[in-house]
């Protein structure tokens, strides 16, 4: 990892077209200004992590997996094996 020291008001370049300027520095945060071509996607790392995880979560949803999941989240006591999921009820605040 390249480490660089910069002060507020100073900037650096990534390649020829991306400029990152340090706008403001406080005790716990830095404010950065980024200039880049439209084609360059800029996002917070945790947004990318969340996006990837959302895609994994959505593609993991299969009916057969729900049954094995239920075995893991059965909270104590005896749980009868779930054979069918047919009863439908809308979510209510009690479900929290």
């Amino acid at each position: 990892m390249l480490i660089m020291r910069r002060r507020a008001g100073e900037s650096f370049l990534i390649g020829g077209e991306i400029e990152v300027e340090v706008l403001e520095v406080s005790a716990t945060r830095v404010k950065l200004g980024i200039v880049a071509p439209d084609a360059v996607q800029i996002q917070r790392k945790e947004t990318q992590i969340t996006r990837d995880e959302n895609v994994s979560a959505a593609s993991s949803v299969r009916r057969d997996r729900i049954f094995s999941l239920l075995e893991k989240v059965a909270l104590g006591g005896s749980r009868r094996a779930v054979k069918t999921l047919t009863v439908v009820s809308p979510l209510t605040s009690e479900d929290t």
């Binding site: 947004t47 990318q48 959302n54 959505a58 989240v73 999921l85 009863v87 809308p90 979510l91 209510t92």
Partner: peptide, 30 residues
Amino acid sequence: KAVFEFPGGLPGFEDERMFAFLSQPAAHPL
């Protein structure tokens, strides 16, 4: 009443704005 709007979508699913939240006794607490 089970429908919630996500005005900003979700990362990776930006176009999905309306979701129904469904629960079923047999699948509790999922």
